[in-house]
Write a protein that binds this DNA or RNA. Structure first.
Length: 829
RNA sequence: GCGAGAGUGGCGAAAAUGGCAGACGCACUGGACUUAGGAUCCAGCGGGGAAACUCUUGGGGGUUCAAAUCCCCCCUCUCGCACCA
């Protein structure tokens, strides 16, 4: 055995060994408790980065720990392989997205193997493979049958340069994330998934997922944005219809003095037609469209608006309310029109002040004598209170009045209670090439026709030429779009949009349970055995999108009969980012640390160890080259523990009982068992690998201390061996290569992954004597060694007898003594 | 603005249920071994003080025998959403 630790050869050796012996492979086993452990799969962008290394290391420790603890652990890996970067890279490099993607996958798979992760590679999935997305197309058809996938026209983000719709998350500050062109709002026919059908259940379960971080649940709740209120109708003065509004403050209706509408509101053209305002309104609408971008960049735009030339009627006061277009009203929320109550809404207040609109106070603060005077207001009073100037509702409380006013309008057909959500249906059409085709055909005679199930998959053609401008080649690639109608057999055109890549990642975790199944999307037996995912691990950046879409998809698949689960992920761990010198690693900052380079210099075990030790998983991790050195140093220390004492260690069996041990050997043994307990609990209950590692380090430190000048003691080595084996086994989930190597050096033949996790011996934990702190008036004054089982009375006596304490007390009277067995004594004077 | 989270040495961080603040590591200092050390080992390492002591967990109050931890007020930072009616 080499005296010096050199990771390179041993890591390769063990990786080969693990692969050859197929230890990472799992199958359903009814006799074992299953555990589905999953880390978010990567986009095959080329190389893994430190964020991946951290994410997957955390997962690997949990997986290996649970394997050793007796669970049947499913721990798969795959590739989120569709997406725009592949197209862009392919255009740039003159290659094909498929080629680019698969070669990246090969490279990255190898990188992951070099890190020693315990994935069952036989279950690997690439979402761009037709054997994967064909089932997604089937889901689409089933959803279409049930109206859960539908087509409608809507405004979308359109990048004129990239020739595609952009998802909301791909729009940064109103500009395209890649080319920085100003994004336009374009009205287009799009496919949608009806996530809003599940909005109540999605919201409900955010209160039933105790294993999720509060933060993520809150973000989802905010994103769903449920708010209860009233839908009210304001009749037009012209008599030609009503303007519907949504309000949470029906109690302020008597103070509504005008109406504000979004510039894109469909009624705008009608309202101004033929009035003197027509030109001004059209001008304003155009201007509003153009300023979309600035709106997002500037914090808050100054409130601006223009009169439409029309009026509507306040249904309770009968007032003529001028209808305005206002730049701050968003079409996407509510009805796109807002009843303006300047006295009680800050935005309306600013608008009214600017345009000289009447301000009428209708709420006074609860307990106030008199309502505020409108002319003296400097800002709106937005709290609930008591109604004034509101006819028969005056003196009523806000909450009660909301119901009463809505109810009375309801009787006239002008109002109803309603619930409004911020969540919109999920637009899944992408005018991109590198994605799963939407299985739909358009026929001039039959209209929208779904592709028959037997014709799936609709394969994405690979022999296309990419367009220089980045647009999808599918609409101009005849062999693909030209088809016949499945219904009438006439000429028809295929849908050339592809699905949002978030669709693939919404169900991949289910497919891992039966990746090769070809009788349907999911093998019921496998799915029932493995789902739900017990532990999901990934970055916080997916808090809403991916994690919400997946939750929706599982509920949909449940209702389609493919699954039985309500929720995909029981427990969620969102790990922090990897940063360096206070910044997120990025090429532009020049602070990127390359995993390959690190592995070459220090070995995978060191890189893994550092990722785990530097911070608890949910916090950001500050990369430190010196910290990496430190991790390497520790592994070297561990290595020498075995290599320098190999003969002595291999000539004894590990100690298995504390009988007849000298005091310091008993103490070392106690430390070893305390460490087993601490590491087990830190890993199992809290995922606090940093403190688990610290505990192992403490044990190593103590081993070195006991070793010092004691090598001849015949009683030493069995205890030594027991302690060192504990160090190796306990650290094996974190640093598996060195652990297996040392384990074998000690003469073991099996793999640690298949070795039961060490158990602590309760009797070894017990010490006869323990250290107890003595305080006087809450200040530490002395430490005394007492029998471990000393009662509080005995403790008190020991403390009062301590010379240092007696000196402190002198002959002053003692008021009280607090004694906590095994902890401390506090003498109050 | 709304919501959430976090403030502890020179640095990364520890401290379940209130009970020795700073475990473990990095950096630093001194020593040993050495031709040499950026290897290894030993020792020291929050501030003030020669010491006894004393101060110290963002700031200020409070509860308690005892507070990083619980309560109230304030400050700062990070993240998410953001003119959401």
């Amino acid at each position: 055995m080499e005296l010096k630790y050199s990771p390179r050869s041993i890591e390769q050796k063990w990786q080969d060994n693990w692969e050859a012996s197929q230890v990472f492979k799992v199958r359903e086993d009814k006799d074992k408790e299953k555990y589905y452990l999953l880390e978010m799969f990567p986009y095959p962008s080329g190389r893994i980065h430190m964020g991946h290394v951290r994410n997957y290391t955390i997962g690997d420790v949990v997986g290996r720990f649970l394997r050793m603890s007796g669970y049947n652990v499913l721990h798969p890996m795959g590739w989120d392989a569709f997406g725009m970067p592949a197209e862009n890279a392919a255009i740039k490099a003159g290659t094909h997205p498929a080629k680019w993607t698969y070669s990246n996958i090969d490279y990255m798979r190898n990188q992951l193997k070099q890190l020693g992760f315990s994935y069952d590679w036989s279950r690997e999935i690439a979402t761009c493979d037709p054997s994967y997305y064909r089932w997604e197309q089937l889901f689409f058809l089933r959803m279409y049958e049930r109206g859960l996938a539908y087509r409608k026209s809507s405004y979308v983000n359109w990048c004129p340069k990239c020739q595609t719709v952009l998802a909301n998350e791909q729009v940064e500050g109103g500009a395209c994330w890649r080319c920085d062109s100003v994004v336009e709002q374009k009205e287009m026919e799009q496919w949608f998934f009806k996530i809003t059908d599940y909005v109540e259940e999605l919201l409900d379960y955010t209160y039933k997922l105790p294993g999720w971080p509060e933060r993520v649940l809150t973000m989802q709740q905010n994103w769903i944005g449920r708010s209860t209120g009233s839908r009210l109708l304001f009749p037009l003065e012209s008599g030609k219809g009503n303007i519907p509004v949504f309000t949470t403050r029906a109690d302020t209706l008597f103070g509504a003095t005008f109406m504000s509408m979004a510039p894109e509101h469909p009624m705008v053209a009608d309202l101004c037609r033929g009035t003197s305002q027509e030109a001004a309104v059209m001008d304003f609408v155009e201007k509003a469209k153009r300023s979309k971008r600035d709106e997002r960049e500037a914090e808050l735009l100054e409130k601006e608006g223009v009169f439409t030339g029309s009026y509507c009627i306040n249904p309770v006061t009968g007032w003529k309310m001028p209808v305005y277009i206002a730049n701050f009203v968003v079409m996407a929320y509510g009805t796109g029109a807002v009843m303006a109550v300047p006295a009680h809404d800050q935005r309306d207040f600013e608008f009214a002040t600017k345009y000289g609109m009447p301000i009428k106070v209708v709420i006074k603060p609860a307990g106030a004598e008199k309502p505020p005077v409108a002319e003296e207001l400097t800002e709106a009073f937005e709290d609930d209170g008591v109604l004034v100037n509101s006819d028969r509702y005056s003196d009523m409380g806000s909450a009660e009045a909301r119901d009463a006013i809505t109810e009375s309008l309801a009787q006239k057909g002008l109002g109803e209670k309603t619930i409004q959500y911020r969540l919109r249906d999920w637009g899944i059409s992408r005018q991109r090439y590198w994605g799963a085709p939407i299985p739909i055909v358009y026929c001039d005679k039959c209209g929208v026709v779904p592709v028959p199930e037997k014709d799936l998959p609709v394969v994405l053609p690979l022999d296309v030429e990419l367009l220089e401008n980045g647009g999808s080649p599918l609409p101009v690639y005849e062999p693909f779009f030209k088809t016949t109608c499945p219904k009438c057999g006439g000429a028809a055109r295929r849908e050339t949009d592809t699905m949002d890549t978030f669709v693939e990642s919404s169900w991949y975790f289910a497919r891992y349970t039966c990746p090769g199944f070809d009788q349907g999307p999911l093998d019921g037996e496998a799915v029932r055995y493995w789902l739900p995912v017990n532990q999901y691990i990934g970055g916080i950046e997916h808090a809403v999108l991916h994690l919400l879409y997946s939750r929706f998809f599982v509920k949909t698949l449940r209702d389609l009969g493919y699954l039985q689960e309500d929720e995909p992920f029981l427990n969620l761990l969102t790990q922090g980012r990897v940063i360096k010198d206070c910044f997120k690693m990025s090429k532009s900052k020049g602070n990127v640390v390359d995993p390959d380079q690190m592995i070459r210099a220090y070995g995978a075990d060191t890189v893994r160890l550092f990722c785990l030790f530097a911070a608890p998983p949910e916090k950001d991790l500050d990369w430190s080259d010196q910290g990496v050195e430190g991790s390497f140093r520790f592994l070297s220390r561990m290595w020498r523990l075995v290599s320098e004492n190999l003969d002595a260690l291999t000539s004894v069996a590990p100690c298995s009982s504390g009988a007849g041990l000298s005091k310091d050997l008993a103490q070392l043994r106690r430390k070893a068992h305390q460490t087993i307990k601490k590491v087990t609990e830190d890993v199992r209950e809290r995922f606090h690998f940093n403190t688990a590692i610290a505990a192992v380090m403490e044990l190593v430190n103590q081993i070195y201390q006991v070793l010092e000048g004691r090598r001849d003691d015949p009683k030493l080595w069995p205890v030594m061996r027991e302690s060192i084996e504990a160090v190796i086994a306990l650290s094996s989930p974190m640093v598996p290569h060195i652990a297996d190597e040392l384990w074998h050096a000690l003469g073991h033949r099996g793999l640690l992954l298949e070795t039961p996790w060490p158990k602590w011996d309760e009797s070894a934990l017990k010490a006869e004597e323990i250290l107890v702190v003595v305080q006087v008036n809450g200040k530490l004054r002395s430490r005394i060694t007492v029998p471990a089982d000393a009662t509080d009375k005995e403790l008190e006596a020991f403390a009062l007898n301590d010379p240092r304490i007696r000196e402190f007390i002198g002959d002053k009277p003692i008021r009280k003594v607090v004694a906590v067995p095994r902890k401390l004594v506090n003498i109050v004077m």
